[in-house]
């Protein structure tokens, strides 16, 4: 089910963003950005509000067509794919790059289980053979539906949501909706999972659970994760690699330690002078949390 990348391939590049520029009229949201996302690891993207992080995700997942630049994905089975040329549904279906949203986008009136089954639409639709096999409930379709339910149940169990399976997704608490959105994205069988502020609105205990989940997905299942996050307790603890964006440009890149102490980063977050580098480690944490 999952494409498990063995640890020794962890250094290979899964996604390579090259000279990406996105303009909206006169506004340049992303300016000549280049970034590599290694396979089998967690890459954090941080930056002040309005830096272009979500725009990057929108370009990556086909919701925006980049003005210039390329997005190359080294897909484990399909080989090299150019994401900028694919419409959004094919990015998720064929390239298996799946995202979540900053403002949760579940199907609120449908149950949690239905949300997870809708995410497996393409597999099921194929099995239902233009709905004909489905209409007559032929064995092939019944089997596919059973597997889809089992798969959804597995993810629900892993994310400790199975007791909520039959509740309407929109009626559940915020933190749980965030988990459901991740579970739903996982049902699409992602090669690269793009999470847009998954810790927003979570309390410290939920954030800690999120950390554990992200590490499990990456280390045990080999899913590469691209993570936009403001909560430094999450980003700094789980990321193998962090890219910092400000005003659409990449201003720093490196391990959490390197980024934490980078004067450029501190300046972008706090607008302070470089002399104050002494308490920089804390400054980033506090500045971002504020």
């Amino acid at each position: 089910m999952m494409d498990t990348n063995s640890p020794d391939t962890a250094t290979a590049t899964l996604l390579s963003v090259q000279n990406l520029t996105m303009r909206f009229g006169g506004l340049t949201a992303i300016d000549d950005l280049s970034l590599d996302v290694p396979a089998g690891s967690i890459t954090g993207i941080i930056g002040p509000n309005g830096a272009g992080k979500t725009t990057l995700f929108n370009c990556l997942t086909g919701f925006y067509k980049p003005t210039t630049g390329s997005l190359r994905l080294d897909h484990p089975t399909h080989g090299e794919m150019r994401l900028e040329a694919l419409p959004s549904h094919r990015v998720a279906r064929d390239a298996q790059v799946v995202r979540t949203f900053q403002n949760i986008r579940l199907f609120p009136k449908m149950t949690v289980l239905e949300n997870l089954i809708v995410a497996q639409h393409n597999v099921l639709q194929r099995a239902s053979r233009f709905s004909i096999a489905g209409l007559f409930s032929l064995p092939g379709y019944r089997q596919a539906e059973k597997e889809a339910i089992e798969r959804a149940a597995t993810w629900l169990q892993r994310l400790r949501l199975e007791h909520l399976a039959d509740h309407a997704a929109g009626e559940l608490p915020y933190g749980i909706q965030r988990r459901i959105e991740i579970a739903r994205a996982l049902c699409v069988d992602p090669v690269l999972l793009c999470l847009d502020e998954p810790a927003a609105g979570l309390n410290p205990r939920e954030s800690a659970e999120l950390n554990a989940l992200l590490l499990y997905l990456c280390r045990e299942l080999g899913i590469a994760i691209l993570l936009i996050e403001h909560d430094m307790s999450v980003v700094m603890n789980v990321s193998d690699h962090i890219g910092v964006i400000s005003y659409g440009r990449k201003i720093a890149e490196g391990t959490p330690e390197q980024v934490k102490n980078d004067p450029q980063v501190i300046k972008a977050y706090l607008g302070e002078d470089d002399e104050d580098a002494e308490n920089s480690g804390n400054a980033v944490t506090e500045g971002a949390a504020a």
Binding site: H89, R90, V91, A92, R93, R105, F107, V118
Partner: peptide, 25 residues
């Protein structure tokens, strides 16, 4: 109760999320 019907309902609920799930809207 078939994928196409669930897709219709999902489309009613959130079209953008549908696309993000790889559905051809």
């Amino acid at each position: 109760k078939l994928p196409v019907g669930r897709a219709w309902e999902a489309l009613r609920e959130d079209e953008i999320a549908c696309r993000a799930m790889g559905m051809n809207t």
